[in-house]
Amino acid sequence: MSGSRSYGDLCGIARALDVVGERWALLMVRELVFGPKRFVDLHRGLSGVSHNVLSQRLRELEDSGVVARRVLGPPAGARVYELTPRGRELEPVLLALGRWGSSILPASTSATELSPDALAFALKTTFAPAAAGDLCGRYQLRLGSDAFSAEVADGRLHIARGEISDAAATITCAVHVLQDLVFGGRDLDAAVHAADATVTGDASTLRRFLRCFDDSRKVEAETGRGDADLTVVSGGPSGGSRG
């Protein structure tokens, strides 16, 4: 990584960390796995990083061939950052790190919910093929200004950023609501009744989709209120959930 410290070690692990071992670097990669983003959207997903550090890390990742910049065609004309083919090779590394980190209690934090991309990563790392069974379908997840498609087929889950027209069901809600539905045991009907979520399409297959994730990755965290809340530890590299 240009201008950064090096371990000066020939080991492949050390050489990889020379490129993506700086603070925030891997989380930036996480935010770009599901598609390109503008600088402002990257910062929104990583609210704890300063603009200066974000700019510096992006330059370093560009210099290392992990991230590239391009300008979207009209009418948008916006400059976006995206992973290069080499950068996309880091996805299984992040998934493995997420699974490993899922058993670690989150550090004390003021964060109450994951970023949309961190939640999408948590879905990928906790997807349980045995729980999915023979489920086959595409689902639209609308989380504020972010939209993802989630497709389950042959015991596998694929998630991509963007809108789809053939969803079996669509859920529109805040990030923390979907967190609670998947990882906190919240009932879908109750969320809809409370106007915290809107569902169109086949609600029964959406319920099956929401049960396709390994709830053994929940951990109990003391809240100081006399009871314990179930707090999901993100399968992605960032921690914290709504408590």
Rank of each mutant, 00 (worst) to 15 (best):
G12T: 13
E89K: 11
V67E: 03
F209Y: 02
L42K: 04
L141V: 08
V66M: 09
D196F: 05
F121G: 12
L58K: 04
G133A: 13
A128T: 04
P36E: 05
G155W: 07
T109W: 02
G8Q: 08
Y7L: 13
R69F: 00
G73M: 11
C212S: 15
D187F: 00
R57T: 12
S6V: 13
E82N: 08
T170Q: 08
T205R: 08
D202G: 01
R59G: 03
M28E: 10
I171Q: 00
L61G: 05
V66K: 02
E151D: 07
R5Y: 09
G35D: 09
W100D: 04
E22M: 11
A174V: 00
G73P: 14
A107W: 09
A111P: 00
P75T: 09
R208W: 00
R79D: 11
H158F: 01
F39S: 01
F213A: 08
A107R: 15
R186E: 14
L181G: 07
A228F: 13
T172R: 12
F213M: 10
F148Q: 01
P85S: 10
L143P: 03
A228L: 14
L143S: 05
R242W: 14
A118F: 07
E163Y: 11
S115D: 04
E163I: 07
R15L: 15
S238I: 01
R5L: 07
G77N: 14
V20F: 02
C173H: 06
L61E: 02
L26K: 06
Y81R: 08
D117M: 03
E91G: 02
L105C: 01
R23M: 09
R142N: 08
R138P: 01
G201F: 06
P92M: 12
L141P: 00
T126K: 13
P106F: 06
T205F: 02
G73E: 15
L95N: 01
D227H: 13
L17H: 06
P237Y: 03
A107T: 13
S110Y: 09
E62K: 15
V152H: 04
R30K: 04
D229K: 13
Q56N: 05
D189C: 01
V219N: 06
S115T: 09
G137Y: 07
G98S: 12
E222C: 03
L143N: 04
P106A: 05
T200W: 03
R70C: 07
